[in-house]
């Protein structure tokens, strides 16, 4: 669902400047702390949005986000769609996972920092409340090498892994690298400050030093999809 919404959003964002000539803009900075069991993330997000439509309640835009993810003893699973679903076509979103193709990588202290370009949509519900969605589209990640335990049924290997360097939003498991997305509501405190809460759906990805997975084909990429509860603040720059 989030992926489909992001495709629509992506199309809108690139059309937005043509609407924007007569529209007002929003420049804002968000800081969010999000967490779930044994994992958390801190993100700082700048976004520039164009208000569109007659009522100017809908806004679309682009931004940039830094997210730093930290976890303890987290399981990652086989990442490439070609292996998880047997296909890398755009229609992979409609395919079921092939369970026997999916192996695990247990990472003791995953730590990934990602810098990504984001696409954003917001809707002003009332004068105080605004709801929105944003998703990372492209960027890069970095982080230290970690010891990892590759588990395939009753066999395994101890290996090293690093965050996958290049990030790109594609479709479903065709995504590459580490990407954050967020569904949020914010409450306006005054003309500059708001508080915000919502859910972050964060993908982090590690690449092992060798192709530890061999069936059904060699693979070194493993992904974790984390659903995190987020709390944060928003500051209006203009």
């Amino acid at each position: 669902m989030l992926r489909r919404l992001s495709i629509v959003l992506f199309a809108f964002v690139f059309a937005a400047p043509s609407f924007a000539q007569e529209a007002r803009t929003i420049d804002q900075l968000d800081g969010t702390f999000s967490f779930a069991k044994y994992q958390g993330a801190l993100s700082v997000h700048y976004s520039h949005l164009w208000k569109i439509g007659k009522s100017k309640k809908l806004a679309l835009g682009v931004g940039g986000r830094i997210t730093s993810y930290l976890g303890a003893n987290q399981y990652y699973i086989t990442a490439p769609a070609k292996i998880t679903s047997g296909s890398s076509s755009p229609f992979v979103i409609f395919k079921e996972n092939i369970d026997e193709n999916i192996d695990s990588l247990l990472i003791q202290s995953p730590q990934v920092t990602m810098i990504n370009v984001s696409i954003n949509i917001e809707y002003q519900i009332t004068s105080k409340f605004t709801a929105g969605f944003n998703i990372d589209a492209i960027g890069f990640s970095f982080g230290g090498e970690q010891s990892a335990n590759y588990i395939n049924g009753f066999t395994g290997k101890i290996t090293d892994a690093r965050p996958t360097a290049f990030n790109a939003l594609l479709i479903s498991d065709n995504d590459h690298g580490s990407l954050n997305s967020e569904l949020f509501v914010k409450f306006k405190l005054n003309s500059k400050w708001s508080v915000r809460t919502g859910a972050q759906f964060l993908f982090t990805e590690y690449t092992t030093e060798t192709d530890v997975q061999q069936y059904p084909e060699p693979n070194d990429r493993f992904r974790r999809k984390s659903l995190l509860f987020g709390l944060g603040v928003n500051y209006q720059l203009q």
Binding site: I151, G153, F154, T155, G156, K157, I158, T159
Partner: peptide, 15 residues
């Protein structure tokens, strides 16, 4: 319990 090929358990069977 692991049964492994070397001291560091770089390749093992999960017993």
């Amino acid at each position: 319990v692991y049964l492994s090929k070397d001291e560091k358990a770089t390749e093992y069977i999960r017993v």
